[in-house]
Computed example of a mutant assay.
Amino acid sequence: MARELVATARLWAARAAVSELGVHARHLRRLWARPGTLLGVDGWPPTRGERLFGRWNYFAQAHLIDCLVDAQERNPTAARATSIARIVRSVRLRHGRRWVDEDYGDAAWLGLALMRAAQYTPVKIAVRDIVRGLRGAWTDHAGGGLWSRADENLKSVRVNGPATILLARCGDRVDMQRARAIAEWMEDSLLDEITGLVWVGLHVNLDGEVRETIKEAYTFIQGVYLGVCLELAAGDPVWAERAERTIIAVSEHLANNGVLRGQGGDDGGIYTGILARYLALAALRLPALTGASATGMAASHVAERLVMTSAAAAWRNRAVARGGPLFGPDWTIPARVPRSPRHKIAERELASQLGGWMVLEAAALLESSH
């Protein structure tokens, strides 16, 4: 049995590695041909605008960094460490030599990725600037939470989830208190008591009245909320219980025959990969957080099974393209190879390739723990 687990671990690591090679071959190129730069091109085959980074995706770059850090933790190399540092520098250069985006959610996701990349390149100033911006996004409208943008009326988990994790990881007492407040606000305002899932967010009037609850339960919303639960569970066991609840709810409502549900193209290609990442972390951490309780162990097993079944489906339905495997946004459907830059399918998009790569890295992480 032990020998079989080792063999499986090597198998998933190899699959994650070839997925990384595919993304590198098709999507990574220098920014405006400048030496020492590197960014993810949004589409493949790329349009002229995509090649010149006239069109680029700040959100996707954050998750590209995260994927590369996953790969570096799996199998460290000097070349990959250099790539991580170059992408971090290039994000700032392409973004007008600033870190903070007008979209607080994108900024929070980048902040989380930069924290993980800190051992490969200096990021202290970047994280400080992002955290400062997030602190200013909190208001008491609708009971609390962060705005999605300074000029919008939306308060969503897309912002509040990664911001909570980022603030909790800063180590500052005030930031930790704010993280707990945001997390409780999400629990009180956005939990669907029937399913155990978390809704997207609230549209809020300037007088603080809630105009509309956006009653959609995207996969990445559950993923980042699960990450919030794991981050806060060490100091409060109620958050471990909420993590268990979230895992079971995902299993019952957001998976088809054990495969996590796809969320379409554009940024949606990344969404289910984010959920897979946090499910893998939950599978590893919950037993210790719950004292190996029966419910904690059961939820851990469910989380692991969801990741492994989804990774197997993504790999089974991959297409063969230049450089390596190519993934679609729905891992239960065979992926298609785009014919040209004008072939508008999700498989062209960097987001879908990152989503597939993420679930394979999550599977490799779980197998290496056995």
Results as ranks from 00 to 15, higher is better:
K155I: 05
L360I: 01
E4C: 03
A179P: 08
R178C: 06
A294N: 11
L68G: 09
W239C: 07
M358A: 14
L202K: 04
F327V: 07
L191S: 11
A16I: 01
L39H: 03
G145Y: 07
G161V: 02
G269V: 05
A181D: 12
A2C: 10
G136E: 15
W56R: 06
Q353V: 09
E361I: 06
Q222V: 03
N317L: 03
W315M: 02
S340R: 08
A311T: 00
G264C: 06
G49R: 12
L28T: 09
S310F: 00
L21S: 14
A294D: 14
A346G: 14
I87F: 05
S368Y: 02
A294S: 14
L230M: 04
I345K: 04
G136W: 12
L360D: 00
G296N: 01
H141E: 15
Y225T: 12
G223I: 08
L260D: 01
R173P: 11
I274P: 00
T47Y: 01
R316E: 13
L64H: 00
L93H: 12
A311S: 03
S83A: 13
A62L: 05
A351D: 11
L28F: 14
R135T: 01
L21D: 15
S156Q: 13
L232F: 01
L197Q: 08
G265C: 07
Y218P: 10
G258S: 05
A7Y: 01
F59H: 14
A312Q: 13
E184L: 15
A234M: 07
G111E: 09
A163V: 04
L166E: 06
G268Q: 02
A137S: 15
T47Q: 10
P237N: 10
E241H: 11
R51E: 15
